[in-house]
Amino acid sequence: MQPTRTKPNRNKINLVIDLAIFVAFLIAMSPHFSGIAVHEWLSIAFGAAIIAHLLLHWEWIVGITRSFFKKARWSARSNYVLNVLLFIDITIVIFTGLMISEDALPLFGIQTIRGGIWHGLHSFSADLSLVLVGLHIALHWEWIVKMFKRFVLTPLLPRRLSPQMQLTAQPPDKKVQP
């Protein structure tokens, strides 16, 4: 007999990855807190996490791309436009960050540019990403709250049993204390 394989919960995976991306984003956005080395390496890893995030939502991306000019709802369209802007902005943040890298790329002997437009562009796109990420979270806030309740709060909080269930939960030979 083959062991039954339980299918991993898609929502749970999404929640864990999104939470990790959010924490990484907050830390990467604060180079004074993390230090420049952590800031750079975490941002590179952040790029990989974004790819994973996009792969997990690939069906939605393809679906809206196909129906964008046809029958998609306005909420889906605005969400799509915001996500495209966020992708462009995050790409610019990571790219300009690599261009002015002080720790990550020089480690491989790659000389990076000091000065020019890159510092300004990096700061501007990073500030913009904060607003776009805020809007992205805001548009998915209901889902976040729902999943947080289901996968974090409910398992943590003591289960509220009805009196009837409490009675049935008692072992048959054990007497109920008055």
Binding site: V38, G134, I137, A138
Partner: peptide, 24 residues
């Protein structure tokens, strides 16, 4: 920025969190 500012720099993280919370 080079070596990380420690706990005092948590204010920076808190500020970003506050901006996101306000937008939400």
């Amino acid at each position: 920025e080079r070596g990380g500012g420690g706990l005092f720099s948590l204010v920076e993280v808190g500020g970003h969190l506050l901006v996101i919370a306000l937008i939400v």
